[in-house]
Amino acid sequence: MPKFKIISQRTIADSVYEMILEGDTSEITSPGQFVNIALPEFYLRRPISVCDCEENTLRLIYKAVGQGTEKMSLLPEGYELDILTGLGNGFTVNNSKNCVVAGGGVGVPPLYMLCKKLIEKGIKPTAVLGFTSARDVFYENEFRSLGIDVKVTTNDGSYGIKGFVTDVLDTMSFDALYACGPMPMLRALCKYDAVCQLSLEERMGCGFGACMGCSIQTKNGYKRVCKDGPVFFKEELIWDTI
């Protein structure tokens, strides 16, 4: 069983934690993939998107939303976790130079690794990061450190631009859009005339395609969000069934 050791944990926003782990990350092959973490005293694993990974380090950002993730936030440095990695199909990095990454809340983390991959290909994306309120904002500086243009929105206007990510995107023109966030946001993004890749969220059982817990109906048949996704092209999705 793949083991990862917690190197550090810190709070980066309200109930949002950044966890750095040490372990074999060789199975993680594209941005937008996720890992599935076994927690002591909880039966099901917790799927968390990969924020970044290097040869032996894994960076995760997650929000403590329930008992499991709350417990995870209390785990000490040095603690060993059993984690399945390299799960799901991530973003396909295409060649569009004029592209935007759009994240909502805890949908923001996988876009960090995506931006790094885009930059490696010589593409400078614009990052549009949406949060509920000022106290929820995280990773603005980390994205800026990549040398890209970053726009932050908050729903209540307490930080950055007031409104949703769509309020910013409406004023821009782009050929490709990569996004991760809540379902209503992803649905709203489908209106843009661009190559849209959307990372969906759905409650999962196994996380590797065995249980059919996270199925959706698509124009190409039934798909498992965990195994066939989580990233889908907008043309595949049938929103009225999701």
């Binding site: 909880f42 039966y43 099901l44 499991g68 759905e202 409650r203 999962m204 059982g205 249980c211 059919m212 817990g213 996270c214 199925s215 959706i216 039934y222």
Partner: peptide, 18 residues
């Protein structure tokens, strides 16, 4: 969906014979 929920020492599923 949701078809899955966690329980103490177990889980609930209502996949429905997909």
């Amino acid at each position: 969906t949701p078809r899955i929920a966690e329980t103490p020492s177990g889980m609930l599923n209502a996949v429905g014979l997909q």
